[in-house]
């Protein structure tokens, strides 16, 4: 009898539980959503009891939080930051600006739909979402990780041409290095 499958499955389950209880976030503070992150982390809502903790650099982070609208200029930086993060990595889109443009829906230099450019795992709706909603978003992401469904990074690698095409349509002066992950 081959025990390898069960061994792999067990390893995956244990790893996923550990990953879901230790989310180090890189809060990319675009827009006004960044003001909700300190409220989530400090004494009233205390996200650290769920294992959510701030990371200092992209290399150390697991979750990229995009807290609000993205201009074309910041989109370029966000893509660089996302590609510097190490697998497994997840993205949380934060507020209505990341979902459909929100109040910037007809702006000339912001993007409207974030998941055309980067693979978003969880969206948190609201303008702005309160800390309760942010915590619920983290809980949703934890559920997804435990179920093995948070596959944003894999999706990004498999459909890289699609994402790169969308990104290049928006970013005119494209000078990215080639990554090999």
């Amino acid at each position: 009898m081959d025990y390898g499958i069960y061994q792999d499955k067990l390893t995956r389950i244990v790893t996923d539980i550990a990953r879901s209880h230790s989310l180090w976030i890189l809060a990319y503070g675009t827009g006004c959503g960044a003001i909700e992150v300190p409220a989530t982390m400090t004494s009233r809502y205390d996200a650290e009891r769920l294992g959510v903790r701030g990371a200092a650099t992209p290399r150390q982070a697991d979750v990229l939080m995009i807290t609000g609208y993205l201009t074309v200029k910041t989109l370029k930086r966000v893509i660089r930051v996302y590609e510097q993060m190490q697998d497994p990595k997840y993205i949380i889109g934060f507020g209505s600006c990341a979902i459909n443009g929100g109040m910037y829906w007809d702006s000339y230099n912001t993007i409207k739909q974030l998941d055309l450019y980067l693979p978003v795992d969880v969206y948190i709706s609201g303008c702005m979402p309160r800390p309760e909603a942010v915590l619920e978003g983290f809980a949703k992401l934890q559920e997804q990780i435990r179920a093995g469904e948070a596959r944003g990074a894999t999706k990004y690698k498999e459909n890289l041409d699609y994402y790169r095409g969308n990104q290049k349509k928006i970013i005119k002066n494209w000078d990215f290095p080639d990554y090999n992950w």
Partner: peptide, 28 residues
């Protein structure tokens, strides 16, 4: 956490963090 009037992570949180860090890939 208690001094800052928070509930704080569980005492074994560092073990979870260490396990997660060990299970991450290093491509750079």
């Amino acid at each position: 956490a208690r001094v800052q009037n928070r509930y704080g992570p569980p005492i074994y949180q560092n073990f979870i963090d260490a396990f997660k860090l060990f299970s991450k890939t290093t491509a750079v």
